[in-house]
Write a protein that binds this DNA or RNA. Structure first.
Ligand SMILES: [Zn+2]
Ligand SMILES: [Zn+2]
Ligand SMILES: [Zn+2]
Ligand SMILES: [Zn+2]
Lengths: 158, 158
DNA sequence: GGCTGTATGATATAACATATCAACCCCAAT
DNA sequence: ATTGGGGTTGATATGTTATATCATACAGCC
């Protein structure tokens, strides 16, 4: 699972590994990966694209796992709180994390044409956000790093 | 108008200069800074904090400048499109630009305690977002750089 | 049994944003 | 002076995202 999901890859292993790693981490940390939570993670893992809470909710509803907004939002809160998913602020939507183990300073690259979203890793210490914060004496608790544009394939007209 | 609005300053000049500079630029570029547009800019300039469209709309409504959501959103679209205001994605809200003339790669520092928002300038070429994009062959059209945390005053318990 | 903490269910509402069509106004070309 | 286009505004409706609140279920513990 590299950061380059813009490229072709064995996507079934993305899902399998993502779920397996969440199962293991939850066991280690005594977190309850309940049915709905796991299913939402699978739904997110199924596409390299950000999904809205209501889009996820539709799937849950079809499967009898819940039909009201809080069902989706609660699962998403759990997943984002524990690092299994991220919120994409630009899209008001969510995506599965593809760097579950590592320390996290993700940069999201959002293709406006094919909607794919890739999570890359940044070194925050070398970043423009931390630099600006340091200079202002600002204590960063959370940073949003998102770029919208065209992925290599869409940019080249492929 | 430095980037350090976390510090005390003559705030009346923030408003006066912000409006004056917008008036001038609109004249130069043949943009129509209509009554509603200018008033929304003034409203945004009146606080170093991001305001939601509906919060702005309340003010417009009280002043008889319009009462329906599109009124606020249209003015905000004009202001953001031409660089007089920015959208803060993290907050789904808007703030007046404090660097109107310069080239723009703003970093926003959002204090979760006092709600103040400061716009700092980044050098995108030295940034983590551009670096990640270059590495992935991604063409950036728009970047979101926002940090949430505590401003110097709130961090020190002042 | 009763207590506690966590997770779910269920209802309602808040908050944010856009689509659409009609009306108006300015200005310029015929 | 009329006509037509572009940009702006008015007005209504609707779509989308998110949270508040209260009730219920269930498991682990004493
Ligand atoms: Zn994949
Ligand atoms: Zn991640
Ligand atoms: Zn000021
Ligand atoms: Zn503060």
């Amino acid at each position: 699972m590299t950061s380059q999901a813009f490229e072709a890859h064995d996507h079934r292993s993305c899902i399998a590994e993502g779920v397996a790693s969440a199962v293991q981490i939850c066991a280690e940390r005594n977190l309850q990966l309940t049915k709905a939570r796991q299913r939402v993670l699978e739904i997110l893992l199924s596409e390299h694209r950000a999904m809205g809470a209501y889009e996820i909710l539709e799937v849950l509803r079809a499967e009898g796992l819940g039909s009201q907004p809080p069902v989706a939002y609660r699962a998403l809160e759990f997943l984002t709180k524990h690092g299994f998913a991220h919120r994409i602020e630009r899209l008001n939507a969510f995506i599965a994390c593809t760097h579950v183990d590592n320390a996290h300073a993700p940069v999201f690259l959002i293709c406006r044409a094919c909607e794919r979203v890739v999570e890359a890793e940044a070194d925050p210490a070398q970043g423009e956000i931390d630099r600006a914060a340091r200079q202002a004496g600002f204590v960063v608790e959370r940073a949003v790093r998102e770029a919208e544009g065209l992925c290599p394939a869409c940019a080249s007209g492929a």
